[in-house]
Amino acid sequence: MLAREPLPPAVIETDRLTLEYGTDAGVVRAVEDVSFRVGEGERLVLLGPSGCGKSSILKSVAGFVKPASGVIRVRGTEVKSPGPDRMVVFQEFDQLLPWKTVRQNVEFPLRIVGKLSRSEIRERTETALRKVSLERVIDSYPHTLSGGMKQRAAIARALVTDADVLLMDEPFAALDALTRTQLQTELLDLAQELGFTLLFVTHSIDEAILIGTKLHLLSPHPGRTITSLDTDDFGRGDIGSARLESMSREVHDLLFAPSARKDILEHV
């Protein structure tokens, strides 16, 4: 059992992560004892019903929430505070700062880091916006954009810094179905092109299977690991296929059927 192959170096690693938050009624445990690792270029999806603490896990990897116990490491260093090496894309449309144009929004993280020259910043911003096909609205203010365009701009803003890790917290949840499908495939294309490492949170099973190379299933109240699955061989070609459907049913059973869950737990 100990004679495993040496694991490839992890980009994100959580070790027995437990998260708690204080409410008026006392301390509530949101996540308990969750461990996972995301290797270079992998896309790990945290999947579970609401209340399983998946967003809390993402926020703690981003550095917004301090763990009650356990460790989070990004490229070997323990996460202590937020930083632009882990760029977050949120669900809410108001994540674009309304007082900045699309270009200024995308430039913003680069300007704060302040390492690049003006022309480099300009060039990178334009490249990132071209990748998400937003060059048409580059000088518009966010309030004039549609929801899908806002999320695209947020993705461009995350890509522009060459961050080690992208963290996405249900970025497509507030979009209509058509835009959602389109953005999912666009994200997959970008992942193929750029090979970024991604931690992605969703409550949609199909989205999880499609986006992820690995799924990490969580049970609610508090969030505990159910199991991990490999979904690397599912791609955009599988949208609507029977294979995806059966996988999706399997995941659904794992998440919701009590017997199946018990079964799994006994085998772990």
Binding site: A62, F64, P82, G83, V88, F90, Q95, I112, V113
Partner: peptide, 11 residues
């Protein structure tokens, strides 16, 4: 969200 965006950039 906007607060978190600012903190995300290390502000």
């Amino acid at each position: 969200t906007q607060r978190l965006v600012g903190r995300n950039y290390g502000l």
